[in-house]
Design a binder for these strands. Structure first.
Lengths: 118, 118
DNA sequence: ATCATATATGAACAGATGATCATATGTTTG
DNA sequence: CAAACATATGATCATCTGTTCATATATGAT
């Protein structure tokens, strides 16, 4: 007689909550984009780059020197950061300066810091 | 005569800014922890789990059913979320209910959403 | 005690990721 | 135009990650 014969027949949350959850879920594309965004923050090198840019815009070789890493490694990561629109850049002669794209970066990292400092 | 003979001798930011950046950087351990935290957010399954828990605490099999994934996969990811202290759980008989650990989760995901919706 | 149910866990494997190396592109200077 | 410099990029490789499968643990019911 019962439709659902597997687990969670009776013990769990009410069906209307399950329905409600399904309705409230953002669409798959947004969830995917969100995970992709956080992946970008989920790497020590990229976090360090972002922290460096908190203080001032900076060229690639300066970042590499500051973080004691190869120019190539930094360049690859700056590409990832730029694709995620977390940083922007501008050219001045041979040099390319990178800077934080917007204040969400600070906000997100700030919230993260609060959590781990608990 | 010059100490620094590589790139960035003259064109780039002033040395005092470089010094300032070095001083302002959080220590390596904090940066590592921060990256680890964002890694946890950087997966579609875990993001979806967190969104489900936005609405209500829920047991493992319900989450699995809602997300159309195996109980094992969900259990593995709940473990990761718990280790990052993003969710907590409580037992009620055979069932274990998971819930959001604190409001940083909402804040962080909210900021992330704002960014991708730009 | 035995069985069913809910969840957890370890091993294994495929796919993703990040640093390195070599090289390419683009800019300035002589 | 050639050389020097700043940056970007493609290939490679070792490592990490997430799912699956099989199995273990824990609780409740009979």
């Amino acid at each position: 007689m019962q439709e659902r014969i597997e687990c969670c027949d009776e013990h769990c949350v009410h069906p209307e909550i399950l329905e409600h959850v399904k309705l409230e879920m953002p669409d798959e594309e947004a969830l995917y984009d969100l995970a992709e965004l956080f992946k970008v923050f989920g790497d020590t090198t990229r976090i360090r780059i972002l922290y460096v840019l908190f203080e001032s815009e900076m060229c690639v070789c300066d970042i590499a020197e500051l973080l004691n890493m190869s120019q190539s490694a930094i360049s690859h990561q700056l590409r990832v950061l730029k694709q995620a629109r977390l940083v922007g850049n501008r050219r001045e002669g041979k040099t390319i300066y990178y800077f934080l794209a917007d204040d969400h970066v600070r906000a997100i990292i700030g919230q993260g810091m609060e959590h781990i400092e608990e």
